[in-house]
């Protein structure tokens, strides 16, 4: 699990690539103490999400996983934890996923149908003109 600040810091490192504490602190929306950013980066390093190397006197941090890899890992961990629970919770999760996918499919089909209708109207209009 990651906190809000940790996610923000990870977003910055993913966007910027290898960054120092100073680089990250400068990119934050709100001003935070240097030591707070340093502690957060250190925590992310200890969680295995960042790699670090020493450059002169400061550490440079780089993401160990790409954003997609991290999201896949997160989804996998979440599903594994949920499915490891009692049977009803696993069934519930699968049924929620099926519902969500069906809703998304229906919305996509509605959107495609709308686009086809608009295109047909355009075509009719052009033909009349």
């Amino acid at each position: 699990m990651m906190g809000h600040l940790e996610i923000t810091v990870m977003e910055i490192v993913w966007a910027q690539g290898e960054s120092s504490v100073h680089d990250v602190a400068q990119k934050l929306d709100r001003p935070l103490a240097y030591t707070t950013v340093m502690t957060t980066l250190d925590r992310l390093f200890k969680k295995g999400l960042l790699d670090r190397r020493k450059s002169e006197r400061a550490f440079l941090y780089a993401p160990r996983l790409s954003r997609t890899e991290w999201e896949r890992k997160r989804a996998g961990d979440f599903l594994a934890a949920f499915l490891a629970g009692p049977r009803p919770s696993g069934d519930l999760l699968i049924s929620c996923l099926v519902d969500a996918v069906s809703e998304q499919d229906a919305a996509l089909l509605d959107q495609l149908e709308r686009r086809i209708r608009i295109k047909r109207k355009e075509l009719d209009r052009r033909r009349k003109a």
């Binding site: 499919d105 089909l109 495609l112 149908e113 086809i116 295109k119 075509l123």
Partner: peptide, 17 residues
């Protein structure tokens, strides 16, 4: 043909439904 393109697109969506 634009007409056939629209008809095929609509057919795909209907079959997907």
């Amino acid at each position: 043909s634009s007409n056939r393109s629209l008809a095929l697109a609509a057919a795909l969506v209907r079959v997907a439904r």
